[in-house]
Design a protein around this nucleic acid. Sequence first.
DNA 1: AGATGCATGTAAATCGTTACATGATTCA
DNA 2: TGAATCATGTAACGATTTACATGCATCT
Lengths: 183, 183
Amino acid sequence: MTIQYAILGFLSLQPMSGYDLKKMFQDSLTVHWSGNNNQIYRALVDLFDEGLVTREVIQQENYPARKVYSITENGRTALHRWVLSDPESPELKNNFLIQLTWADRLRPEELDHLLKQYDDEVENQILITRAPKQQELLAQARSPRERYLWEMILKNRTMRYETELTWIRNLRQELLKETEHHK
Amino acid sequence: MTIQYAILGFLSLQPMSGYDLKKMFQDSLTVHWSGNNNQIYRALVDLFDEGLVTREVIQQENYPARKVYSITENGRTALHRWVLSDPESPELKNNFLIQLTWADRLRPEELDHLLKQYDDEVENQILITRAPKQQELLAQARSPRERYLWEMILKNRTMRYETELTWIRNLRQELLKETEHHK
DNA sequence: AGATGCATGTAAATCGTTACATGATTCA
DNA sequence: TGAATCATGTAACGATTTACATGCATCT
């Protein structure tokens, strides 16, 4: 039930509506939820019931009313406690590696084509990390240390994908060598 | 619905029962399912209904009967097609990074303790990759190229965790420098 | 005129894990 | 004696996504 804490985190920056949160989730590269209504609106109700957030309905002229949620002191305490909880090592989910496990049946060209496609996919992910949207978010940091942490979180992402690129390029090269060798 | 293809992959090595598959899932570091009965036994029924596997009941003396599944030609074709399907870039799910996003409220010692715990977790994962069980699985490879691919898949895992270690150690060091500076 | 944005929510479906249920055998 | 292994399967729950539903305003 990490989504509740992810929401508390966002609300610790500033009060937001469910709609705002939805966009935060969609823009965020580290918080990995689809930003679907179902989870967000339910989680907000739960957080409200637990007294971790307060709710204020704001009427607007030309747009539907907004329900703006603010984090409470109890909410900040809960967030703090969760941040201190035992970290888990990252899940290395990678369907491509499962594909690759059974790829020995492919002809050398087919295999290389598959690897090339993966290479392109990964390169694209690195570009996304560098997108201006991500730089904008950094501006919201409330202290130099927080900004540094956020930069490092983005760097973590880039480093991972770069490792992936190094790995896949090395693999392609070695396989090509082998193919040449057998000609 | 990748679990069906993961099963087809295992069955392409040799005929197996649901129980055997369960162990394969539990031992595998790349195929990331818990190896729970519910999914496996249902998937096998589905695969059978689709004609991608055949079933043979083998009575045993001192143990319950086994239902041994074998991949069919249609099954191999389906697996081959899936292996060629467009690869996705890896999901970088990492709850720790979400924790870290809101960690600026922590005192320097608290933050360093959290980072240290993460470091330990990651180190532990590297040890698991090197476990003898993984080396045994390599022996099942059906060709030198397959064995090479499997070695590289293991290497991918190690490389990722090593990148993570580099990253976290750099982060800790920089934060400690800052703390010293402010004394 | 049609897509997109603002803003809320619900329904249905899928995916995944843990726990339950059974029962014999073997090992510590 | 109690735990683990062999072997099948179901039930219940929780997590997550996609799609449905509404309605006004703005932009192309």
